[in-house]
């Protein structure tokens, strides 16, 4: 059984999400390969050995510099066909979702997405997919190979195995139409901390902050903790914070190590976006707020006094 994980990289670093999927792929039994596509990425590719890849395929080409999906579809399609790859796994990202969809169309392959787990059962590969607004997990499978799977963000952590990988260079030929798109400009949203999908620590604010200015202290706490800022739909709706920070059913799904919910009641629409967090701390003045039903640590009190105090303590502790 041949499994390849698409390893995404950004600013010279392999992304945590895809390294996590590398660890997850180990569950399928057998060796796991990675694939790194880009320009000047050979050295980076070798690093994946430390996280469990036995082989890393590399396509190094200037045409792969920009994070565009189509040229990558060309490379992956050739790889799958030439090496007889049976399973290709992706960690959720905008590029991966585009790429997985494009590859599925190119190879006429089945793609299961939003997976939270994958395993071999009685010789068949079975994915776990969350459905009906996260209320149930369903088993999903593939009727043919190659199988493509796109995993939800943050469902697995990278595991350092300390191994080394054989790096195998791929010759690439691009189709003309794949090069038709050109990256003109890449703009980054101004943000001081990590993006909420990659952050280990998230400080989130809701309506209980009282006013848009309340996000000032949320940002302070996030900075002190080295985390990112998230928001509920209600405050995004009200224009207090940008949509890109919205966590929940119609926003982003996050699963950080620590999620500090400030002035958030914990409606189920919010809960489904953050319930995978390892430790949930809730600060809310309403003791009956639903969030206390699933928070690991609850503080009943006024966010206006507790959050600044907390920030102070964190700063003092960190020196």
């Amino acid at each position: 059984m041949s499994v390849v994980v698409f390893l995404e990289h950004h600013e010279g670093e392999l992304q945590k999400g895809s390294l996590g999927i590398l660890a997850k792929a180990g569950q399928l039994g057998g060796e796991v390969a990675g694939v790194v596509l880009g320009s000047g990425v050979e050295e980076l590719a070798a690093g994946a050995g430390r996280y469990g890849a036995s082989t890393v395929y590399v396509a190094d080409d200037a045409k792969l510099e920009a994070p565009l999906p189509q040229p990558r579809v060309d490379v992956l399609a050739q790889l799958v066909e030439e090496k007889g790859i049976e399973t290709v796994l992706f960690a959720q990202s905008i590029l991966s979702a585009d790429l997985a969809a494009g590859l599925a169309a190119r190879l006429d392959a089945g793609l299961n997405w939003q997976l939270v787990d994958i395993a071999t059962q009685d010789g068949a590969v079975v994915g776990k997919q969350s459905a009906l607004g996260d209320s149930v997990l369903v088993d999903v499978g593939w009727t043919s190979t190659p199988r493509l799977a796109l995993f939800r963000a943050g469902i697995a952590d990278p595991v350092e195995t300390g191994g080394t990988a054989t790096v195998e260079k791929l010759d690439v030929t691009f189709q003309e139409h794949s090069l038709a798109a050109e990256m003109l400009e890449q703009a980054h949203e101004e943000s001081s901390g990590p993006s909420i999908e990659d952050a280990d620590i998230i400080v989130a604010g809701g309506r209980g902050l009282g006013a848009p200015e309340g996000f000032g202290m949320i940002e302070e706490l996030a900075k002190a903790l080295g985390g990112a800022v998230a928001a509920t739909r209600a405050v995004v709706d009200a224009g207090w914070y940008p949509y890109s920070a919205q966590v929940g059913q119609t926003g982003k799904n996050v699963s950080p190590v620590l999620y500090v919910a400030c002035g958030i009641s914990g409606a189920i629409q919010h809960k489904v976006g953050m319930q995978g967090s390892k430790v949930i701390v809730a600060i809310n003045k309403d003791p009956n707020a639903p969030i206390f039903e699933f928070a690991d640590l609850g503080i009943v009190g006024d966010v206006q006094t507790i959050v600044p105090k907390l920030t102070e303590l964190v700063r003092a502790r960190k020196g």
């Binding site: 995004v236 119609t250 409606a267």
Partner: peptide, 13 residues
């Protein structure tokens, strides 16, 4: 709100 959730509504905000 929990009822709206149960209706399967996940309209783009």
């Amino acid at each position: 709100l929990s009822s709206v959730f149960l209706s399967g509504n996940r309209t783009r905000d």
